[in-house]
Amino acid sequence: MNALIEVLIYPISSFILISAFYLQAQEFVRSMVIGQMIQSALLGFLSFVIGFAESDYDFFILGVLIVVLRAFLVTYMLERRVPREKIHLHEKKVDVAFTFLVNLILVVTAVFLIYFLIFRSIHLVPDIGSSTIFIFPLTLFFQGLFLIASRKTTFAQIIGYVEEENALVLFAMFLLPIPLIIEASVFLDVLALVVVSSIVVIEKFAHEKMEDLVGLSHRHFLRCLSFSFRLRRTLPIASRESPLLLWAGD
């Protein structure tokens, strides 16, 4: 049993993480869609392996669900929406090398902090191994979040979201699989969300800041912090493009 875990579970989990880093390093939309498909297929395969190791048929059903709904249907939905125009095929204005470096620093720091502070004490189903295995879903989760945050195209953000969901499936597989009916509902929910998102893709390929979606300027915010409440005053539009504004969330 332990040999099987060492031979298969850890390497497959590592490949899932490699696929996540591959997605982060990609600028091309089609490659990202394929990368997502490979990641989901690996997750499905891992489910079969754990099912075999645990002699639990629920994992086999889960594996089939992952392969059919995520690796196939989600990929099909996204692939259909990839724009045919050459200009849209890759994401411009993204410094892949720089974001990849920032990504590595943030994800590694976040995972190690959270693992050592929280998850180290959680005990697993004995056959799976030690709690260090949680590093895989945690890294995948933060990787998905970072992909959403660091990219501006609708495709990249959808794939980031699917990656986040894959991380939760992986987490549940290692910890304690939740009832299949709930897992299946979650899969269908994610599929529906991808369908809805693919409708938005047609209308809006990339996302930038918009003046109408900004409520206040950073100078207003600073005035506010200094308790000089002066209501209903506006400032030049240029002053609304501030990093502080992004932090403030409005």
């Binding site: 409520g215 206040l216 207003h220 915010f221 506010c224 912090l225 409440f229 209501l231 209903r232 506006t234 403030a248 409005d250």
Partner: peptide, 8 residues
């Protein structure tokens, strides 16, 4: 704080 400074 945010509410007081909205323009819409």
């Amino acid at each position: 704080i945010f509410l007081g400074y909205q323009t819409r």
